[in-house]
Amino acid sequence: MMPDRVRVRAMMPPGHVRTPAYLRGKTGIIERPLGRFGNPEELAYGRRDDTRELYRVRFTMAEVWGDAAERPTDTIDAEIFAHWLVPAKD
């Protein structure tokens, strides 16, 4: 069960990764669960049976861009696979 507040893992593995680099290491809230989808990191090599939970995660501009944020409370939503998310410590 994914907690409401999550942090995107800050790893930089090679391969067909669909987690945008600008969101790695950032904390957001789960906007909604989306169900299970093929893991793109495996699909890229023709392996279709690895499915993972996918979530829409909402980040504030302040969290993503810090002081450079245009307006701190505007948001970015992105789809992130469960294996990229860890519970966020407050």
Binding site: R18, T19, P20, L34, F37, P40, L54, R56, R71, T73, D74, T75, I76, D77, A78, E79, I80, F81
Partner: peptide, 15 residues
């Protein structure tokens, strides 16, 4: 206007 919140949606996966 400033009071409107902008929500950006980045289509990163299957949606």
């Amino acid at each position: 206007p400033d009071e409107v919140t902008v929500r950006v949606h980045d289509s990163t996966a299957d949606m």
